[in-house]
């Protein structure tokens, strides 16, 4: 009989995946990721998904910035 393991499949870009693996090993004691499946997929414990997501958001905030799009400067010209 094959084994069935409960968890959450995470699909993401390879870059994000490597950040997730880094977070898992440095901050979470390797407790979140069950298996590294392939380039873009990870198996993660269900109860750890939220933590992982929060840590990722934190990490991305440090590194990732988008320029402010479209200021409303011409707003008062009306329609």
């Amino acid at each position: 009989m094959p084994r069935a393991i409960r968890g959450v499949l995470i699909e993401c870009e390879p870059a994000i995946k490597s950040i997730l693996i880094h977070i898992d090993s440095t901050q979470l004691n390797n407790d979140a990721i069950i298996e590294d499946l392939d380039e873009t997929h990870l198996m993660v414990k269900e109860q750890m998904v939220k933590t992982l997501q929060a840590r990722l958001d934190e990490k991305l905030k440090e590194t990732y910035r988008v320029e402010v799009p479209l200021d409303d400067s011409d707003e008062d010209k009306g329609m």
Partner: peptide, 26 residues
């Protein structure tokens, strides 16, 4: 997309099949 960097699907992973045939059928 920008704010959703991970696609999450809860479920089950199947592995350790007895044979290739079993895996293929399932």
């Amino acid at each position: 997309l920008e704010s959703q960097r991970m696609q999450k699907t809860p479920g089950f992973q199947f592995k350790d099949f007895e044979s290739v045939e079993e895996y293929r059928q399932l």
